[in-house]
């Protein structure tokens, strides 16, 4: 690639996507009796990383498939890089990269073959496709294995190759559907580092994940998806703040668990969880309720509870997720 063509594409990319790289309004999709999407709304500003967080079957994958032009929505609109996914599917396809839950690469040929082929299908031209394959192999540290059959690759290497295949054209928008599911921690870290690098270079990334720490680590904004809808959307910190502080108390004696849990429930306004083996009580304070460490210790002391350890932590996305989905279950019931 010449520098001029990179600049030209970048400029064109920004012109098309001034406000939002991904804009989804009221998306509905039904498969037989299953309503996979029930009015999904989502906006992802250009150059940011958005994490779609939700349990299995929440509709994350269907949402990505609609955005990647693989599935037509029943209702609603979706624009990617400024193009409508139904009416301008071809332009959308030229603007996106897709890496999925499967390592969607051909196992019967080499890693280099795979990248060259995908370059060809993106119409880079044979010479350019070869160069681009070499660049990617170098950058993702796969040069040594480049001429081996993909069949012989480890799971982490395949996933890396899969990610590389989605980057052949340096797309302005990248969809990653559970990019690290089933990977060992080291491979996971490598994929994370690559995603951060892409994001810092200006790529818009929509990432689905079941791993809450993954969204926390990578995403500028998180959209929590449940039953085909976005039930909460915002920066991870904001979502955590809305849920409130997490209190963890470890007792000296297991016998005091019940009175201590009652006390903490009254103080925090939340439902406490107890672990008799570890003699711990965990409770997430109701959103906005201020909790002071000193007062907490005094109240416990006054009630005659001997605490070994008292800690206030900001809630994990797990807490956020549980709090939000519990609400949605209540609403449904």
């Amino acid at each position: 690639m010449t520098a001029a063509s990179t600049d030209a594409t970048r400029t064109a990319g920004t012109a098309r996507t001034e406000q939002a790289a991904i804009e989804v309004k009221g998306l509905h999709k039904r498969f037989g009796k299953t309503e996979a999407l029930r009015g999904l709304d989502l906006t992802v500003p250009a150059g940011t990383v958005c994490g779609l967080l939700g349990p299995n079957g929440a509709g994350k994958t269907t949402a990505v498939r609609v955005l990647a032009t693989l599935v037509a929505p029943d209702q609603g609109t979706a624009r990617v890089a400024g193009f409508d996914v139904v009416r301008e599917a071809d332009q959308v396809r030229r603007s996106i990269g897709l890496a999925g839950q499967h390592a969607a690469v051909d196992e019967g040929i080499t890693g280099r073959d795979n990248l060259r082929l995908f370059g060809r299908f993106h119409r880079l031209g044979a010479r350019r496709a070869r160069q681009r394959a070499d660049e990617l192999l170098e950058r993702f540290d796969l040069t040594e294995a480049a001429d081996r059959l993909v069949r012989t690759y480890s799971g982490g290497m395949r996933r890396r190759l899969d990610l590389m295949a989605s980057l052949v054209t340096q797309p302005p928008v990248l969809f990653l559907d559970e990019p690290t599911t089933g990977l060992d921690p080291r491979s996971r870290q490598e994929i994370w580092a690559s995603i951060r690098e892409l994001a810092s270079a200006g790529t818009t990334v929509l990432l689905t994940t079941q791993y809450l720490d993954e969204a926390d680590q990578l995403a500028d904004a998180v959209a929590v998806v449940d039953h085909g809808m976005v039930i909460a959307h915002g920066p991870p910190e904001q979502l955590k703040a809305a849920v409130g502080t997490r209190i963890e108390v470890t007792l000296a004696e297991a016998g005091q668990l019940v009175p201590a849990a009652e006390l903490l429930a009254a103080l925090a306004g939340g439902e406490p969880g107890t672990d008799p083996d570890r003699r711990t009580i965990t409770v997430v304070a109701r959103g906005g309720l201020p909790v002071e460490l000193l007062r907490l210790v005094r109240e416990l002391d006054a009630a005659g509870v001997a605490a070994q350890d008292v800690a206030l932590r900001s809630p994990s996305l797990d807490d956020v997720f549980l709090a939000l989905t519990a609400n949605s279950i209540e609403r449904a019931a």
């Binding site: 690469v105 051909d106 119409r123």
Partner: peptide, 13 residues
């Protein structure tokens, strides 16, 4: 089954 069809379909081919 392995998503290669999907990858190809997400390309301008």
């Amino acid at each position: 089954g392995r998503g290669i069809t999907d990858r190809l379909r997400s390309m301008p081919v």
